[in-house]
Design a protein around this nucleic acid. Structure first.
Length: 209
DNA sequence: CCTTTGCACCCATTACATCA
DNA sequence: GTGATGTAATGGGTGCAAAG
């Protein structure tokens, strides 16, 4: 019979395949819920595992199983049989232990991934706030600059009042305005948006304002 | 080509043990 | 005694490869 052997380095790459539900959660549809048949209580009855009511594994058994799991999460039948005889367990028990252990491992990974994503998200939200206040500050600076230009034009001190730039408004500002406004804090890279995508960029920002 | 068969696996769930 | 939690075990479903 065949045994599926999966190299350790392939394991992470195979996770979506190994755990399809993890990446494509299947939500049971209303009404057509594929409920599984309930198992009847087996009070002292026969067990499929040789009838013995042997449950908790000893610490020693668990240690060896953990050791093996650490080396390789999958279990080829040869290794399963060897482990089983080493531990004095049914091979089926070893397989079940590995199955449950993989499930626990997967849950742990999910939790880790969740908290990682959560902290990344928190960082992004923080950065968004910072950028928003930066935008406000720059808008105020722009306003002041416009007022100053206006004042100078009214005094008639050499600046042509017909200059297109004198009618500069908040809406019509040239895209790469940050560099012009003394944004020497190094935000240019963060903020630079090409002319073509400028409007889209603003719309995107408005989504979060 | 198919269909069937056997196996390993995942998943959801149950059953039971242990502990606060 | 009891509810919460952890884990061993079960049953159904699926994919895959070999055999018929």
């Amino acid at each position: 019979m065949k045994t599926r052997v999966i190299e350790p380095e392939d394991q992470m790459a195979l996770i979506p395949q190994m755990y399809p539900g993890l990446y494509t959660p299947i939500a049971p549809q209303q009404g057509e819920s594929k409920r599984r048949r309930r198992r009847k209580k087996n009070k002292g009855g026969e067990s499929s595992l040789s009838g013995a009511k042997k449950r908790k594994l000893s610490q020693e058994q668990v240690n060896l199983l953990e050791l093996n799991f650490g080396n390789e999460h999958k279990l080829e039948s040869e290794r399963k049989d060897r482990l089983a005889s080493e531990l004095g367990l049914d091979p089926r028990q070893v397989a079940v232990w590995f199955q449950n252990r993989r499930a626990r491992w997967k849950n742990k990974k999910l939790e880790e991934e969740y908290s990682k994503l959560k902290s990344v998200h928190e960082g992004v939200v923080l950065e968004k706030c910072r950028l928003e206040s930066e935008v406000l500050k720059l808008k105020e600076q722009l306003c002041e600059a416009e007022k100053e230009t206006q004042r100078q034009a009214e005094r008639g001190d050499g600046v042509s009042s017909n200059s297109p730039s004198s009618s500069l408004s908040m809406e019509a500002i040239d895209p790469p305005f940050l560099g012009e406004l003394g944004a020497d804090q190094g935000y240019e890279d963060v903020f630079y948006i090409s002319e073509n995508s400028y409007i889209l960029g603003l719309e995107w920002m408005n989504l979060y304002m």
